[in-house]
Design a protein around this nucleic acid. Sequence first.
DNA 1: GGATAAATGGATATTTATATCTACTTTTTA
DNA 2: TAAAAAGTAGATATAAATATCCATTTATCC
Lengths: 147, 147
Amino acid sequence: MISQTAEYALRAVACLATYPKTSLTAPRIASITKVPASYLSKVLQALGKARLVKSQRGLHGGFLLARPADKISLLDVIDAVDPIRPITQCPLDLETHGKNLCPLHDRLNDAIMLIQKAYRNATVGELVSQTGKSKPLCDMPDRKKIS
Amino acid sequence: MISQTAEYALRAVACLATYPKTSLTAPRIASITKVPASYLSKVLQALGKARLVKSQRGLHGGFLLARPADKISLLDVIDAVDPIRPITQCPLDLETHGKNLCPLHDRLNDAIMLIQKAYRNATVGELVSQTGKSKPLCDMPDRKKIS
DNA sequence: GGATAAATGGATATTTATATCTACTTTTTA
DNA sequence: TAAAAAGTAGATATAAATATCCATTTATCC
């Protein structure tokens, strides 16, 4: 339902949210989230351009969330790397129904908007806050072990 | 949100539903739905294996829906070519959380199930029945023009 | 039965997404 | 200010999805 790239982006952001205010290097994030390191750099750059993460070069540099985790929705992250776009016109682009979507694409678009809404209403903060019966987030090491 | 292949499959089925009981050849369906003809044959074969369409070889052969359009859900069609699968285990496959999904994949899975439900509750029949404000289905020719 | 029309199946080509590698620039700190 | 750590960017490789081609089989009509 989401691309591999989007999945990686979400893992990375979840990882950063787990260690807030802690600058993590790309290789560090890669090893924690089990994402190919060289690919992750690209993903992190995309997240940077979307202003979701801040990067710091040089010794002791790394990545940080650009704003609190509960102000970042899953949709923000997904859209940064692989946008979910509503269907705005029939892909068969026929003159006869101009701007209108045919019933088929209307339904498909409904589904897309449903998904958008679901991702928009879920924040990265929720993922790491572990309320109630939530399970451990992808086996990350404890904060104390990392810093 | 769905693959190109799934989109093609839906167009083909919608097309067949528009001309019920009429055997349409693959090239005919291709031209109506604007799907590459040689690719569509493969898609139609997949639909055949899933028992959604029946095929007839030879002169005056072609394809037909295997059952009434209102007994075919969009999910049936999508699953025939490109199944939507719930997440059953964390893709990082870590021992620590066994069968449990972490909060991230829990959310992603919620979205997948939401989509499944939406597609399961929409039938191909609905698409072509044009109730109320529905718009023309992808500019198909009138029935009288085709047979 | 022969000619024609149509689906089927296999091999192959093309495109896109995913992943890797390497050289380069920036920043920190000793 | 030099060395090391880290992000940046571009070129390239690999894998997967999409698309095409062609030979074969099946059915229908005359």
